[in-house]
Design a protein around this nucleic acid. Sequence first.
DNA 1: CCCTGATTCGC
DNA 2: GCGAATCAGG
Length: 141
Amino acid sequence: MSGESAEPMVWTDERIEQLKELWAEGLTTGEIGKRLGVSKNAVVGKAHRLGLKGRPSPIKRTKAPRQTPAAPKEKEQKIRSVVDLSAHTCRWPIGDPREPGFHFCGAPTIANKPYCAEHAAIAYVGASSPKSPPPRDEDAA
DNA sequence: CCCTGATTCGC
DNA sequence: GCGAATCAGG
């Protein structure tokens, strides 16, 4: 008949007291964790939150190694589209036109060529007739 | 390899 | 706020 609800793993004053007590005794997080039936992480986590300080283990971590590098935020797109090309911008295609991220070189061109110095050398490789600019792998579409 | 504690991140 | 995960040192 007792309306005893299941303990939702909540740190009650009692448990917190035990935690502080055992912690003050000099027990380690692992010991306290075993005593209270929680993981040492839970103990150290609660201890840290409670404001308890660990005298031992003056371990110092470098900086913020824990970072989520998976945060691709589109803030600025420096991709040159075909409409951004002018008479003095290299029209050398970068990547495959059918692929996303395809763009043009955009570097300053030389003479009256539609390409920059580097790409012009590739385009007009010694021959009288200009070769195909992009080294297409295959056009099996 | 075992332990310790500290910080960060997801729920 | 809680704890696991991760990191850092002994």
